[in-house]
């Protein structure tokens, strides 16, 4: 109810107009109905007169009123949907960001040019402000729905299909976003942190992540432990291949952790990121977000988890 983009503010005004009109119509209808119970005297009418009165009401209220209202709605309000179509822009291609829904987190990809690899991150969406952005949506498992309430409407993410929605943030800012289609046990805990940045800041942010990753040394205990317990599902760019223990077969993918240290939340918005938060999450994630897809870590001692957590907090571009 606090629009921050053109699509949302369109709908904001459409809503208030419709609300005003509806309240007037409803009150008039109620008043007419109740009035019929209040009258004491009834004139004698011939069937012809009765017919005329009936026609007046039914043609006026039953036909004319709804026809006029819905024609008005269709003519004035329906075309506002055009703004959200990914039509070609006069100034060229709109910025494109891919979002993939998972149970229950978000994978965000910034497509690379030609052979360049995509920039991949999770649960935090950074977008340029003041220009339209095309979000290309799909899902890896069940149907999710992508919704940034203050920017505009939502769009479902359907496995096997891609669909595009165009949104725009007028000013830089931070917005909440969420999965809007019921997607299982942790539907509630599927939140997304959206940041709109000035174009320059956005380019800088992206460039930082575009640069090729530095290889990670295989000395530290935390790195070894990560390789043993986590790397089968979670990618970290530059992580030494040799340390990855993929003996355990997993058919799910966890979020990419390359820049996890720079993210504002953990567990798709369940926990704010602070010092020690990752270690805490690793120990208690099944209580913090019951049913999430990461297996419990009861078999790993607390010290190792704290090590891994501390190491991950350093993962920033």
């Amino acid at each position: 109810m606090d629009p921050a983009g053109p699509a949302a503010s369109h709908q904001f005004w459409v809503w208030w107009a419709m609300l005003f009109f509806s309240v007037v119509v409803a009150l008039v209808v109620f008043a007419l109905w109740l009035y019929t119970f209040r009258r004491r005297e009834q004139p004698q009418r011939t069937p012809r007169e009765e017919q005329r009165i009936m026609l007046r009401w039914v043609l006026g209220g039953g036909v004319l009123l709804p026809v006029v209202s819905i024609v008005a709605l269709l003519v004035f309000a329906a075309p506002t949907g055009r703004g959200m179509l990914p039509l070609p822009l006069p100034e060229g291609e709109a910025e494109r960001i891919e979002v993939v829904g998972h149970q229950w987190w978000w994978e965000i990809r910034y497509p690379g040019e030609e052979d360049e690899p995509d920039v991949v991150t999770a649960n935090r969406l950074v977008m340029p402000a003041g220009e339209p952005v095309d979000f290309r949506l799909t899902s890896a498992d069940v149907i999710h729905s992508f919704w940034i309430p203050r920017l505009g409407g939502k769009r479902d993410m359907v496995p096997g299909r891609h669909s595009t929605i165009r949104l725009e943030a007028s000013e830089p800012g931070v917005f909440g976003a969420q999965c809007a289609e019921f997607c299982g046990a942790q539907h509630t805990g599927m939140l997304l942190h959206v940041e709109a940045l000035e174009r320059d800041d956005y380019d800088a942010w992206l460039a930082e992540r575009r640069s090729p990753p530095e290889p990670i040394g295989d000395e530290a205990d935390a790195v070894r432990a990560f390789g043993e317990h986590c790397a089968a599902c979670h990618t970290v760019a530059g992580f030494p291949e040799a340390l990855v223990d993929d003996g355990v077969a997993h058919d799910i993918v966890g979020p990419d952790l390359t820049d996890i240290g720079s993210r504002p939340t953990l567990g798709a918005g369940v926990l704010p990121m602070e010092e020690g938060a990752i270690a805490y999450w690793l120990q208690h994630h099944q209580t913090l977000k019951p049913g999430n897809r990461m297996p419990p870590h009861n078999h790993i001692d607390t010290e190792t988890l704290q090590d891994i957590g501390a190491w991950l907090e350093t993962m920033e571009p």
Binding site: V67, I70, V71, L74, A78, P79, G81, R82, L85, P86, L87
Partner: peptide, 18 residues
């Protein structure tokens, strides 16, 4: 007849496949 016109009317302002 009215319903036909009403439902078909959006063809004048929307592209077909987007």
């Amino acid at each position: 007849a009215g319903a036909t016109l009403f439902v078909g009317y959006p063809v004048i302002f929307l592209p077909p496949c987007l």
